[in-house]
Simulated assay, not measured.
Amino acid sequence: MKKTLVLGASENPARYSFEAVTRLRKHGHEVVAVGRKAAVVAGVQIETEPPVINDIDTVTLYLNPTAQKAYYDFILSLHPKRIIFNPGTENEELEELAQQNGIAAIEACTLVMLNTGQY
């Protein structure tokens, strides 16, 4: 299973990030969540500050490119295998930084990847 950071997590069931946390857990993945408001979704505590974490396989983004800038150093310091840029989060600058650091940058939808077995 792939330990995943959901960046931009929300307790709002209408948000795709909420659905991502829920479905990742249903598929057996360990999830770390960071968002604006502390809450619990599918048994996962949403942190409001970047936590100290190890062994992150995947970072899946649910933040617009402007909001992502504050997290560049944090994301890169995790040395994930890949970053998934969900629709609306595409960011050429962060994609280039990821590739320069040996991290795969994927423009895709986490929910579709889970549903099709491509996660």
Rank of each mutant, 00 (worst) to 15 (best):
M1N: 11
K2E: 14
K2Y: 12
K3W: 04
L5M: 12
V6N: 03
A9V: 05
S10I: 02
P13N: 07
A14C: 07
Y16D: 14
F18L: 04
E19S: 14
L24Y: 01
L24F: 02
E30G: 11
A33I: 04
G35H: 00
K37V: 12
K37Y: 10
A38T: 13
V40T: 15
V41Y: 01
V41W: 01
Q45Y: 06
E47H: 15
P50N: 15
I53E: 06
N54E: 15
I56G: 09
D57Q: 11
T60D: 10
T60A: 11
L61H: 05
L63Y: 04
L63Q: 06
N64I: 10
P65M: 10
T66N: 13
A67K: 15
A67V: 10
Q68F: 09
Q68W: 01
K69L: 14
Y71H: 13
Y72R: 11
D73I: 08
F74E: 05
F74L: 11
I75K: 02
S77E: 08
L78R: 02
L78C: 05
R82I: 08
R82L: 08
R82T: 07
N86E: 01
E90S: 09
N91M: 06
L94M: 14
E95N: 09
E96Y: 10
Q99I: 12
Q99L: 13
Q100W: 03
N101A: 14
A104H: 10
A104I: 12
A105T: 08
I106E: 09
E107D: 11
A108T: 04
A108Y: 03
C109I: 08
C109L: 11
T110A: 09
N115P: 01
N115W: 06
Q118R: 15
